[in-house]
């Protein structure tokens, strides 16, 4: 990782000193012409993924030799347009392997059934990546103070997550019943304790006018203590109604998006089905936290054909 000598040791040290906020502005590559966010469109999702990562500097920029890589994919449900496509996952594993990764692990709190029915377990097996499914026991999740948290004061992140050097976030972008949109920012709830995720909803959420914005604030807050080294977003076939579980109306942008700026990537993705990023609270609040850039004019987003 170019911008972090050793994230694991940094976090351990930080925890010792009571420092848990590891947020920093996204790294902007100094190489001329390299985009902050690469968008590749094509019918071959595997090829699109390879190209998108290559366009932002290649996997070796993020994965050093012998590093341990953890990947967070979305395996919500095998309904079409509701989970990260297996071809995209396969491409990422291969790129990590080629970059010299010693371990490539996928962490999940969702049952194996989800990994089987989405076809992702088969891909992981074929590509020799390991799937680690954690239970819901509290001890498996480490309490992390959210110092910059406006609503969320304590997160509980999978303890196993801190055993890795590189974190690759692999959401599928889609509709969400509560937030109207989900992508890179919201996907991080996948490494937080499911019981802690429940506290993202106010106790009186059914009658409190600010309840939905509270959820958005919690997601933005969570993003202040976890920073993916790389985000690769599936926007190939996505549901734009009845999300995040589906089934719903399907849109097929056939795009794979790679980058490090979660806010910019989410701001781009929501426009795929006509949403205004400035109306999506999670994106606005994450931008306010300094997590990334909401204004597309300030981000070098480049589109390519596969």
């Amino acid at each position: 990782m170019k911008n972090k000598i050793n994230r694991r040791s940094f976090i351990k040290t930080g925890a010792l000193f009571g420092v848990t906020s590891i947020i920093a502005a996204p790294t902007i590559l100094d190489a001329a012409g390299t985009p902050d966010v690469a968008v590749v469109q094509g019918t071959d999702s595997f090829a699109s993924t390879l190209k998108a990562v290559r366009k932002i500097g290649g996997m070796k920029r993020f994965v050093k030799k012998k590093s341990k890589v953890v990947v967070l994919a979305n395996v919500q449900r095998s309904n079409p347009g509701a989970y990260t496509h297996p071809d995209i996952v396969r491409a990422v594993i291969r790129m990590c392997r080629e970059a010299g990764a010693a371990k490539i692990h996928f962490l999940s709190s969702l049952p194996e059934t989800n990994w089987e029915s989405t076809g992702l377990k088969k891909v992981l097996g074929e590509e020799e990546a390991e799937l680690i499914i954690l239970g819901n026991e509290k001890d498996l999740y480490r309490p992390i103070a959210v110092e910059k948290g406006v609503a969320l004061k304590e997160a509980r992140i999978m303890r196993a997550f801190y055993d890795y050097d590189v974190f690759i976030n692999m959401p599928i972008t889609k509709d969400h019943a509560g937030n109207k949109f989900t992508g890179s920012l919201k996907n991080l709830m996948g490494i937080n304790w499911p019981m802690n995720n429940r506290t993202f909803h106010k106790p009186n959420w059914a009658t409190d006018p600010d309840a939905i914005q509270y959820l958005d604030q919690c997601i933005a807050d969570l993003n202040t203590v976890i920073r993916p080294d790389l985000c690769i977003v599936d926007a190939t076939e996505i549901i734009i109604t009845n999300g995040p579980f589906g089934p719903g109306e399907i849109l097929t942008p056939r795009k794979v998006i790679a980058g490090t700026d979660r806010v910019a990537m989410d701001a781009y993705c929501c426009t795929l089905w006509g949403l205004d990023p400035k109306q999506i609270h999670t994106i606005v609040l994450a931008h306010k936290h300094g997590i990334g850039e909401i204004d597309p004019k300030k981000v070098n987003i480049k589109e390519f054909k596969a």
Binding site: Q76, R77, S109, L110, P111, T113, E116, S117, N136, H176, A177, G178, T182, K186, M189, G190, P194, N197, R198, H201, W205, A206, G243, P244, F245
Partner: peptide, 25 residues
């Protein structure tokens, strides 16, 4: 095919990881 999954009350959050609150509402 395979084993069905079930959930009762607020355990729906564990079965539907995202969007369960809408059903509960």
């Amino acid at each position: 095919s395979g084993q069905p999954q079930t959930a009762h009350g607020e355990d729906l959050y564990l079965l539907i990881n995202g969007g369960a609150e809408l059903v509960i509402e």
